[in-house]
Amino acid sequence: MKVFEFDKVSRGYGAGDVLSRISFGVDRGEVIGLLGRNGAGKTTLIHLVMGMLAPREGEVKVFGLDPRREAVEVKRRIGYVAEDQELPDFLKVREVIAMNRQLFEGWDDSMARDLINRFELPPDRKIKDLSRGQARQVALLCAVSHRPELLILDEPAGGLDPAARRQFLETSIRLLNETGTTILFSSHHMGDVERMASRLIMIHDHQKWIDSDLDAIREGFSLALVPADAGVDGERLLSLPSCLCARRHGDLFHAVYELDPDTCCKSLRKELAVETIQCRSLGLEEMFIELAGRES
């Protein structure tokens, strides 16, 4: 059974769709990196999994259940840190932890204690007196200490310094190691995505633009550089099979193809009869900019 599943799910606010007919399923132990520009619909997708939003069309299942109709059963098994996590700021750290301990079965006291020490959290300080980073660490502690089957992190790196980001990463990996937890996280930090994700889903123009094993992306995509004076235009590049995007950068056209660089180079040179075309592999960050930064 899939940990969660989207079947032709659409959802918007007001007239248009933010997400349009999105389908995919996630298996146990997968780590999904969710990418997209600001406003692409990453948080909407996460809210649909959490049952905080209902789909306009289609169906969302989490652990085979409807996350809105069986909200308690589903949430019990999920750990969630929101992008703008709000904890009751009049409570002390130890009171927030005690409250979560009451809410979740299977709370692991030794894990919670270990994280308090690791994050160096002051148990008697009120939430409102914590730094932003510390507040997020309390939220993370509460999200993982019941050893959830599914951990959802919306922009976990947002506003954190590199050391605190690293702790988020290490805590998630520990949970993955020890509990086999499935993880869904959105991030703009490509380094974190490269380290953590086993699979990448990129949302663009309301659609799932890319949904692929991370290693397949790194080895199966290439950037073609075509001199602008070679008599080939963007339309022509886009019309070739497996082209994801093409646009002009000064004297060159940049085009991304779902082919390894060698094959890409050979077939483009042959197809377009331009010997000066060059192809190379591209990192995730570069790919994101080529794809998402294009004019739509």
Binding site: G29, V31, R166, L169, E170, I173, R174, L176, N177, R195, M196, A197, S198, D215
Partner: peptide
């Protein structure tokens, strides 16, 4: 396991 946490890398990647 002992490698994945300090390296900050998904254990499946090391296993692969």
């Amino acid at each position: 396991r002992s490698l994945s946490v300090p390296l900050g890398v998904n254990p499946m990647t090391i296993s692969k």
